[in-house]
């Protein structure tokens, strides 16, 4: 890079700024919107200057939405809690099921192992709408429709393949000799899995867990169809702001800010851990 001219640097700076602006501006605009009333949001031309209000956040947190047509109860905080509950449970369950499975696929080549692994991955190929109708019928017959258990189960379609395939790669990267050495030292296979494979694949498991969490959090269509209002996550709940008296842009914006905060916080926290983990120089002794 030492030969870059001033012009090149300036152009590069401009290009980078444009890209950042392109991706960050919507977020920034929503952040501003969340502090405005519908009137200031919808005025023409739009302006960066307004009287900030916490009304939107207050309405969401208290659950009382005052519109021109009267007062409306919304359960946004309940939906936020649903999102946390559903995503966390789904990821935890996926990790419990997926990590040992990934280890098995990485270390043991048994008959049909590749086929099984690929079938699990293929769940990600199918458009969700394709399976939703039969799934809805099954769930109604099994009594799983509109239950947390049913939703967490369906979320495995999103989380499990992701975790399985990412973590499998990390397990495969661990030198088999390192595990052999621990076995030969006198430890059983389960101790080897727990004390060697799990810690060494730790960063990968964290990355996969984080990614699965974000995918689960952002899911919309499964919850929309398979759950009723009191079990639905924030992604579906945002629809409630499309009211008879108009679309409540301010509350939607505040809702978005609140709902991306947990994933953003986890991502920022885990990023530090991921970088640490990956710079461990993990597998080479």
């Amino acid at each position: 890079m030492e030969h870059t001219s001033t012009l090149e640097r300036v152009l590069r700076g401009i290009a980078l700024s444009l890209i950042v602006l392109f991706f960050m501006f919507p977020l920034f605009w929503i952040f501003l919107m969340s502090f405005q009333t519908n009137e200031t949001i919808l005025r023409i031309p739009p302006s960066l200057f307004f009287e900030p209000t916490l009304g939107n956040y207050k309405a969401l947190i208290t659950g009382k939405l005052d519109t021109a047509a009267g007062s409306l109860d919304i359960a946004f905080m309940k939906n936020l809690w649903n999102s946390v509950l559903l995503s966390t449970s789904a990821v935890v369950l996926s990790l419990i099921l997926g990590v040992p499975a990934a280890y098995a696929f990485a270390r043991h080549k048994f008959r049909g192992s590749e086929d099984i692994a690929f079938t699990l991955l293929s769940f990600r190929f199918a458009p969700p709408l394709l399976v939703l109708l039969p799934l809805t019928i099954y769930f109604q017959q099994l009594g799983l429709a509109d239950t947390y258990v049913g939703l967490i189960w369906v979320y495995q379609l999103i989380c499990l393949p992701l975790i399985l395939w990412i973590v499998r790669g990390y397990f495969e990267d661990i030198s088999a000799d390192v595990e052999y050495a621990y076995r030969i030292a006198g430890h059983g296979w389960f101790a080897t899995f727990r004390k060697i494979a799990l810690p060494l694949a730790g960063p990968g498991i964290a990355a996969a867990g984080l990614l699965a969490f974000i995918f689960a959090w952002n899911n919309f269509v499964f919850a929309l169809v398979l759950a009723s209002a009191d079990k639905q996550p924030v992604t579906v709940a945002a629809l409630a702001f499309v009211t008879a008296s108009g679309i409540q842009y301010g509350q939607i914006a505040a809702g978005i800010v609140l709902s991306i905060t947990p994933t953003l916080a986890i991502a920022l926290y885990a990023q530090r851990y991921l970088v640490e983990g990956l710079s461990l120089g993990a597998v080479k002794g």
């Binding site: 060494l200 597998v283 002794g285």
Partner: peptide, 17 residues
């Protein structure tokens, strides 16, 4: 392997990082 009571050293050391 864990019950054979052998000691082994590896070419790539295979230390637990």
């Amino acid at each position: 392997a864990e019950d054979r009571g052998v000691g082994m050293a590896f070419q790539n050391f295979a230390l637990f990082p």
